[in-house]
Design a protein around this nucleic acid. Structure first.
Length: 420
DNA sequence: GAGTTTGAAACT
DNA sequence: CAGTTTCAAACTC
């Protein structure tokens, strides 16, 4: 298990052993601007040990060489999520890493890159930094920033982020034995920057578990996992915060456990330059609500595609039919957990019964009544009324009045159907 | 793009 | 815990 003790150990090749006798993952800071990182001596001289107090109130743990190290909140449920700086923990065969082995560390991706910049990756090779931060793009963009791997003589790999001097905290290690798997691969582990929240953790698997490398960095499949967290990451929107310093849950980046990148916020403290304040803000949020960073939308039971809002919405005026409503925005129905008023976004029947049982007021979904046939019937009635008015030679004002009256009758019938 | 509306988060 | 305020996103014009 990764303990805070580990942070006090230097990342020297061959140094550091955990309780199990394996090598210890040692997070290190690497000066990304220094040429020394690229030296054949490896980055060791520039590695900076991160004291535990510099870390977020999470701890690392890896209970099994085949399982990922996980960042944990205190009292935070273990969930697996992809991470901005994901946690990787995988097995590597002994010796220098191959292209395919290294490439998949760039980000979980459907198709591990083994071409272009990644091809022939060995020492000091590069991967797309932006891709590392933002996840795999829909279409692989040109490499504009680089992330470098340094391979130390001791077999350690250290990811070097040339763009975030303070944030990158990665340690990659090899171990000679892969004890629990009975094989002799090494083990690679990339630790995310300590202040990145754990809700985008990524579960990698042993080679012998997954069978193919391409599958290793797929987003995790977990019934309890936040629905859409991976996709949120891919499609993350820039925030526009002005007053919260992006250190309150008003900020979607912060709330999603992400640092602001390419956002339109002002006076932003949700970045590596304000690490301490950011950590305090996280702690403050967790003090206020231990589940503050728990994804609001949890996966549905039995792996159903749609999830449910853990807390439920409280909409009053939107009818839960606008994106103000968190349920509606997440494309899920309101549930009995919601305290919304005048909801039009609820499952009819069973949901309604649940609502009635709890005394909550939620009307039946209009879609269940406003069928195509009903709408066509209403239109036919209005047209018939217009024709009748014309036939009777009524003035436009009277005709309008009669049509509106007919429309009122139709609405009345629809309302009755809704309340049935 | 400015102003308004909305509901979650924060505060009292 | 309820009421109020603050905030930023969604929405409208």
């Amino acid at each position: 298990m990764m303990t805070s003790q580990s942070y006090t150990q230097a990342a020297q090749p061959g140094q550091g052993t955990d309780r199990d006798g394996g090598s210890t993952q040692v997070p290190v800071r690497v000066d990304p601007c220094s040429e020394m990182n690229l030296s054949e001596q490896g980055p060791i001289p520039l590695q900076q040990i991160i004291p535990p107090e510099m870390l977020d109130p999470y701890s690392f743990r890896s209970e099994h060489p085949c399982q990922p190290s996980q960042l944990m909140y205190p009292d935070f449920p273990v969930e697996t999520h992809p991470s901005q700086y994901q946690v990787l923990n995988r097995v590597l065969p002994p010796g220098p890493p191959t292209c395919s082995q290294l490439s998949s560390a760039s980000w979980f991706t459907d198709e591990p890159v083994c071409s272009g910049a990644m091809a022939g990756l060995h020492k000091h090779d590069v991967i797309d930094h932006q891709q590392f931060l933002e996840g795999p793009p829909e279409v692989t963009p040109p490499v504009t920033q680089t992330m470098m791997y340094n391979v130390t003589e001791g077999g350690q790999l250290v990811l070097v982020n040339p763009c975030e001097p303070g944030s990158m905290l990665h340690a990659v290690r090899y171990v000679e034995d892969h004890q629990n798997c009975g094989k002799t691969p090494g083990k690679e582990s990339v630790l995310e920057t300590p202040s990145q929240f754990p809700q985008y953790q990524h579960r990698a698997r042993c080679f012998d578990e997954c069978g193919d490398h391409a599958d290793i960095f797929q987003p995790p499949v977990s019934a309890e996992r936040s629905v859409g967290s991976f996709f949120q990451l891919k499609s993350r929107k820039p925030c526009h915060c002005t007053k919260s310093q992006c250190l309150k849950l008003y900020c979607e980046c912060f709330a999603n456990g992400l640092m602001c990148i390419n956002c339109n916020c002002s006076n932003c403290y949700n970045n590596t330059s304000h690490e301490m304040m950011r950590q305090e803000a996280v702690k403050s949020c967790l003090d206020r609500n231990p589940k503050a960073f728990t994804p609001k939308i949890a996966a549905g039971r039995s792996g159903t595609a749609k999830g449910r809002h853990n807390k439920g919405c409280n909409c009053k005026r939107s009818g839960c039919l606008k994106n103000y409503c968190e349920c509606y925005e997440a494309s899920i129905m309101c549930t009995s957990s919601c305290k919304c008023v005048g909801c039009w976004n609820c499952e009819d029947n069973s949901m309604m019964e649940a609502k009635k049982m709890t005394g909550q007021v939620n009307e039946r979904r209009p879609a269940s009544v406003l069928t195509r046939e009903v709408l066509e019937t209403v239109c036919a009635c209005l047209l018939a009324q217009a024709e009748e008015s014309e036939r009777k030679g009524q003035t436009p004002a009277v005709a309008q009045h009669m049509i509106l009256q007919e429309f009122g009758c139709c609405l009345s019938e629809i309302a009755k159907a809704l309340l049935k």
